[in-house]
Design a protein around this nucleic acid. Structure first.
Length: 305
DNA sequence: AAGGGCCCCTGAAAGC
DNA sequence: TGCTTTCAGGGGCCCT
């Protein structure tokens, strides 16, 4: 369940290992994890490429490559840009390691793509739940899954950090939506990067009930939510993410935000602020955790016009 | 536009 | 103890 802080942590840990490296060989062990090309074509497209940069947009990782122009891979010459997209979905991992490294039986069994780099190291795509994908956007028109991913990427909402989301804009976005807050925060076209864990944590910190309609928030509530989103994300990134499930960063390390979780994964346990048992409901098929007292439900008496 | 349901998939945990 | 069922979740897709 990598969300923005986890993907960002992966980007930061992997970046220094990958940027400047050349991909010597690609082994696609399970073709279903590469979209846009068959296993051989995928390897052919990527082998010989040099990693220019590692970027993130929402929960997508973007591996920016430069490949030798034309078909021949020879001496220095003209190059072309090629951006590979990776979406880890809920259990994908990108692990940088030495070739002899043993990740254990489960992860070894689910190692689906292996990139061998020119310094003798490896980048392995591991995915126990089989939801993630690596997208190769080559050719014109091309693979429908790649097209879909590109459209999703294009339609992502603003990045909530680093000035990507201004207060005025956020306030307007909330006011114009009739949806309940929890599913709205999960909507990647609304804001990019929040997932189930951080949505719950943000709503708790803001003291806002997950079922409240976005447009019903008072200015003060909206402001609290805006600030909660920033605080939670910055803190989670600082602590290298949350590892309640499978997440590890590019070097196999777990995150430390688990201990800061106030509602997620704590149903029935006392609220850390008021002692009321944390509630758990299901919304849009996703578990939602909140404190019934700190996050009061709809206040009809204050319903806006 | 909103919201529900189903699906993908597997391992861990809970239930019997 | 061992087998079976349930659950978790990001996001696409379909239907109302």
């Amino acid at each position: 369940m990598p969300e923005l802080p986890e993907v960002e942590t992966i980007r930061r840990t992997l970046g220094p290992r990958l940027v400047g490296r050349t991909i010597k060989r690609v082994e696609v062990r399970n073709p279903k994890f590469v979209a846009g090309a068959g296993p051989e074509a995928f390897a052919r497209a990527v082998e010989g490429a040099r990693v220019r940069a590692l970027e993130r947009r929402g929960k997508f990782l973007i591996i920016k490559l430069e490949v030798p122009a034309g078909d021949g891979h020879s001496s220095p010459g003209p190059t072309e840009a090629l951006d590979i997209l990776v979406h880890l979905k809920m259990a994908g991992q990108l692990v940088w390691c030495r070739p002899e490294e043993d990740l254990g039986p489960t992860r070894t069994k689910h190692t689906h793509v292996v990139f061998s780099l020119d310094d003798g190291s490896e980048l392995r795509y591991v995915d126990v739940r089989h939801f993630g994908r690596i997208y190769l956007p080559t050719g014109h028109g091309g693979d429908p899954f790649v097209r879909r991913a590109l459209r999703t990427l294009e339609e992502l909402g603003p990045e909530p950090r680093e000035g990507g989301l201004a207060w005025d804009e956020f306030r307007r976005m909330l006011a114009s939506r009739d949806a309940r807050l929890k599913p709205l925060l999960l909507d990647q076209s609304f804001i990019a990067g929040l997932g189930n864990i951080y949505s719950d944590e943000c709503l708790f910190r803001a003291g806002v009930h997950p079922l409240r309609k976005a447009s019903s928030l008072t200015e003060e509530e909206a402001r609290r939510l805006y600030e909660a989103i920033h605080e939670v994300l910055e803190e989670a990134i600082r602590l290298h993410g949350t590892s309640v499930r499978d997440y590890v960063d590019g070097e196999g390390r777990r995150g430390e935000f688990d201990e800061r979780l106030e509602v997620y994964g704590r149903p029935g346990e006392p609220c850390l602020r008021c002692g009321t048992p944390i509630a758990r409901i299901v919304l849009g098929g996703r578990s939602t955790h909140f404190c019934p007292r700190c996050q009061p439900a709809h206040d009809e008496s204050r319903t806006n016009v």
